[in-house]
Write a protein that binds this DNA or RNA. Structure first.
Length: 275
DNA sequence: CTTGTACCCTGACCGC
DNA sequence: TGCGGTCAGGGTACAA
């Protein structure tokens, strides 16, 4: 369940090891992690021999920029990376390695994904530009102001929790931080996004940026499967106010935290202080 | 256009 | 001890 803070943590771990390196070879153990193109041979033809010029992030997607294309990684639920001197992953926990990328410095980047919901996507620069146009703004960017959040929430009639999860409105927010941000702003997750008044939008803007920033400072939340590079755990799980705390007392008002299902996902909130 | 639902996948967990 | 059922949720395809 890597969201923006987790993917950014992974990006910061990977960038110094990968930037400037050339991809010497790639072995795809499970073809179903290839999202496009879907065939090993075609995928390898685009990637092998290319230099990684930069490691970037957009929303929850990690981007390896190549000289003549973009290698996109979606970790989805259980995707992980580690780097080792090869040929075996240095982490015993990597029992479901789906792909191995050999670098020109002799090291190997291992992609492990138990459920294989995540994977890789190779795109031309032009195709990536089209793809990126579907994303909403980055909530931690300096230019992301209260009015931008208001605009993102005002479209349609979706509950504010669902709106926060919609990557075309705001990029990078997932199930954990959507619940946490709404609790921080004392807003009921079931309220239609467009029903929030100016003060509520302002509170949610502050709360969302604050929780994402603090999670990033703590290398993310290791609630279940997420690990940063080489098995490193996040530290934000102890700071969660509502996520995963059904039946426990709210740390702000003492009411029992409730769990409901919205759009097929769990939402945690405090009925006492999220009016 | 928006919104909701099924699906992908495996392992952890739970009740019996 | 085993076994079936449920759940975890990011993203997409598709229907309404």
């Amino acid at each position: 369940m890597p969201e923006l803070p987790e993917v950014e943590t992974i990006r910061r771990d990977l960038a110094p090891a990968l930037e400037g390196r050339r991809i010497a070879g790639i072995r795809v153990r499970h073809e179903d992690i290839l999202l496009a193109p879907r065939r090993r041979e075609e995928f390898r033809r685009h990637v092998e021999g290319r230099r990684i010029t930069a490691v970037d992030r957009r929303g929850k997607w990690l981007l390896f920029r190549l000289e003549d294309g973009v290698l996109v990684t979606q970790l989805r639920m259980t995707g992980r990376f580690c780097i080792g001197p090869g040929p075996r992953p240095p982490i015993a926990d990597f029992r479901h390695v789906a792909a191995e990328i050999d670098l020109d410095d002799g090291r190997t980047l291992f992609y492990d994904d138990v459920r294989r919901l995540g994977g890789f996507l190779w795109l031309t620069p032009a195709a990536w530009t089209r793809e990126e146009a579907r994303f909403g703004p980055e909530p931690l960017d300096r230019g992301f102001r209260t009015v931008d959040l208001g605009a993102a929430l005002s479209r349609g009639s979706a509950p504010v929790k669902n709106a926060l999860l919609d990557q075309s409105r705001i990029a990078g927010v997932g199930n954990i931080y959507a619940s946490e941000a709404l609790h921080g702003a004392r807003i009921d997750p079931r309220r239609p996004g467009r029903s929030l008044n100016a003060d509520e939008v302002r509170r949610l803007h502050r709360s969302l940026r604050s929780v994402l920033r603090r999670a990033l400072e703590n290398a993310g939340t290791t609630f279940r499967d997420y690990r940063a590079v080489n098995g490193r755990s996040g530290r934000f799980q102890g700071r969660l106010r509502v996520y995963g705390r059904e039946g426990e007392p709210c740390r702000r008002c003492g009411s029992e935290i409730r769990r409901i299902v919205q759009a097929g996902r769990s939402t945690f909130f405090c009925p006492g202080c999220q009016a």
